[in-house]
Design a protein around this nucleic acid. Structure first.
Lengths: 142, 142
DNA sequence: TCGTTTTCTTGACTGATTCCAGAAAGCATG
DNA sequence: CATGCTTTCTGGAATCAGTCAAGAAAACGA
């Protein structure tokens, strides 16, 4: 589906900032709001920060985008949705990559005891160092 | 081990704020920095916010405390460490509860492809609504 | 084309957390 | 049990990601 169709189906108005955000994000997964704003401005010229946040929030709310919020790092967004995959996050730079599920379909999706909670999502985050940061850290220590 | 011994073994100086934080947190798991500060002040009198953050960071760094940072909520701390258990977080109020691992020892600890990352932790967070917030939400809708 | 509704702009604001400089402990040593 | 070095605490300013609010501008159903 094109971004245009996606917006329409989600009941959102079709605007230049929205199209630009969705298109740019399709080519640059796991980008931060800041990076999205930069990318969108490169295409459209001036776009307010607020507009970018509005678009990201509206799309995340309607399921067009998925938001990942790794502890200690700004949120990142991706257009790959619908398949519950997980993420690999670099502790140092926040770089994020997709990880498909190991144990088949839905791993760890069932907590052993919900304590009365109504669970609607299981989030799995793998923490570590990306290749670049590993190299950088080693050099620091040497 | 007493808080005193824990600090000593970790190579941290034994100070009133540190003892108070560890003791209070042992009785109040999953507390936020704010709640910890309040609890500590109730015992010791004036303690700066900064001191509380310093203690929490120092203890988290040396492994005496575990920090949980649910997206959109302030960080929470707990003294239950060493057994890689997971958490159940309420989307609405941030209330956090422990969840033991379903699939035996280390579930989902192995991503299918690390993409060059060095993984050192697998974090699993279950999102949902706690009993109180579920009730509150229902009432709102009614 | 019009009027309603949503979205965008600008700018101020918030909440959690960190940075900084100096004062006040802790503790290994003599 | 003094001494001095080092870590920690205080107080206050600053940061950062993100939100709130009011008015202007654009979308789209009729």
């Amino acid at each position: 589906m094109t971004p245009r169709e996606l917006l329409k189906d989600a009941g959102l108005r079709i605007t230049a900032p929205r199209l630009a955000v969705l298109e740019w994000l399709a080519d640059h997964p796991h980008a931060t709001a800041d990076q999205v704003a930069e990318g969108v401005r490169a295409r459209l010229g001036a776009v307010s920060t607020q507009a970018v946040y509005d678009v990201l929030n509206a799309c995340a709310r309607t399921g067009l985008l998925r938001r990942i919020e790794p502890a200690g790092h700004p949120a990142r967004y991706e257009t790959r949705i619908g398949d519950n995959h997980h993420h690999l996050v670099c502790r140092r730079c926040g770089r994020t990559e997709d990880v498909d599920c190991v144990h088949g379909a839905a791993p760890c999706l069932e907590p052993s005891a919900t304590g009365g909670f109504t669970v609607d999502e299981a989030e799995v985050l793998f923490w570590g160092l990306c290749p670049d940061c590993r190299t950088a850290t080693k050099e620091l220590q040497a």
